[in-house]
Write a protein that binds this DNA or RNA. Sequence first.
DNA 1: CTGTTAGCGCGTTCAT
DNA 2: ATGAACGCGCTAACAG
Lengths: 327, 327
Amino acid sequence: MANIREIAKLAGVSVSTVSRVLNNHPYVNEKKRAEILKIIEEQNYVQNSNAVHLSTGKTMVIGVTLPLVNNQYYSSIIEGIAAEAAQHHYKLMVCQTNNNPEQERSILHLLKNKKIDGLIMCSRSSSCETLNEYAGYGPIITCEANDTTSVSSVHIDHYKTFLIGMEYLMKKGHRRIGYCIGRKNSFNSQHRKRAYYEKLRSIDVTPSPEWSFEECLTIQDGKDVVGKLLHTEERPTAMIVSCNHIAAGIIKEASRLGIRVPEDLAVVGCDDQPIGELLEITTVSSSSTLMGKYAFEMLHERIWRQQLDGKKEEKELTPELVERLTT
Amino acid sequence: MANIREIAKLAGVSVSTVSRVLNNHPYVNEKKRAEILKIIEEQNYVQNSNAVHLSTGKTMVIGVTLPLVNNQYYSSIIEGIAAEAAQHHYKLMVCQTNNNPEQERSILHLLKNKKIDGLIMCSRSSSCETLNEYAGYGPIITCEANDTTSVSSVHIDHYKTFLIGMEYLMKKGHRRIGYCIGRKNSFNSQHRKRAYYEKLRSIDVTPSPEWSFEECLTIQDGKDVVGKLLHTEERPTAMIVSCNHIAAGIIKEASRLGIRVPEDLAVVGCDDQPIGELLEITTVSSSSTLMGKYAFEMLHERIWRQQLDGKKEEKELTPELVERLTT
DNA sequence: CTGTTAGCGCGTTCAT
DNA sequence: ATGAACGCGCTAACAG
């Protein structure tokens, strides 16, 4: 395919004039401009973006990491990122990490070798040192809280989320409340547990170890919880659950076993996955799509701000209670 | 950051030798190779991928289009693509089209300006002419049947899918069977309807127009179907539904209105979205993830096969019946 | 086994 | 308002 030199030759001008036309620069004779555009059209010419990237040092692509694509939580975030990115003419490179630090590093590497202009990490398994190191090669935003010095984040306030959920259940009269969370010692889990214990202590309830379920990741895990609940001494009357799909598992299994929801067991989910709406699950959550939007905004600002002064910024989303039929 | 020339200078060799080391080419003195690698390490050097791309004419990136990211069907396809792509060291550029031909064209354009090496279209709204035109700039695979001359596809046999569903319902004794599909006149819908009418005719049933529901896209649309079903003269005893989430809407609303599933109304869904498993919906489907895998394989072969001879290939996935509790 | 050199295609001073 | 010429960083053909 034709290149810029050929266009210049056909138009009888220099490559720089063609380049000016291509990039809408001023100071080009209107007649020449029209002539050049006509030839570009005739020749079916387009710029080679790799050459542009090499020359400008920008790619107009940002990376997005997530553990797995096929998950509604992450899909919602991406949706928010995608809408905002499209408006600013950025493309998205979506990279699955499988929660594997090595795979994640290979994506951080894209920042170093200039394949992307910035990176949004919907979730991360790399260490803070690694993150800080790569932050030197381009802006990074995480959609989780992180304790690095230089990487900004936009994240859900999981402490507050659980707080609201607990307060709501307690106002409904529940005292024996259990919880369900994912990775045992993650950042998020720690905040959730803190809210849980604080709230129970405030009404002088000592939580039984039998009420807590960790490493709940799949719908099946949710179902299994109900089985275990059956054999507990003092069965909780309510569960607060980090994800709606786990809550869905609990609800389905409960109904199968004749445990009435919410009469025998109330359930509160804590994200905005659409399964919650479908199954009418009471939920306290903030919008993941909005989180994606904010993440792109922060990233975009950092891409264009010249000095990478590395002032860390943290944006927290406020959760809201949506009452439905499981409480 | 350092470039290849600088490394060459520090090592006292030429850039080509460094390039050879970088690309694992043979014919490099082992001692020099080690020395060069050491310097690369010290200098924290990495290649600028844009320069590599410009020079090689390949980017090792493929594009993936889909109407919207936040949809389990498309997420499943991407999952299949992503896994296979990772194995071959390809990155994914995921592009949302919103079913808008103009946005889609801007993505096809990426093929022309060399930003991607190939394109998988999970769904498309462009015309065949447009597709054929851009197929000249790089390989394209669609995950829907298409009637172009040059664009290969891997797709679900929707005719067979509905056939299996209908046969199954009929074997269960149903005669008054309704259907629910999405876009009225899409390729897929036509095949589904053909199977529907053929099967009913084979048992001498004349379907009532009241049994057919088109333009069903959301869960709410599924719920609305039940409302309309209530006022029909001869209410169908079974529904065959193109998507599980529509089926889910039907089931939820039916249960709310006291219509028993499957006793009063049997429901068969026709995809592999996980909501089907959760709600125990009987389904006839093929694996979307597998479709993604195949799509990448076909694309990859076409990227590396030199002559773009344009032999069109079509791969059909065979659907399977999964009996659950809604029939 | 190694180096020289000519591209790859474009952006961008700088001089005019 | 325009063009010559250099630089972006790397690969690969060719010569040795």
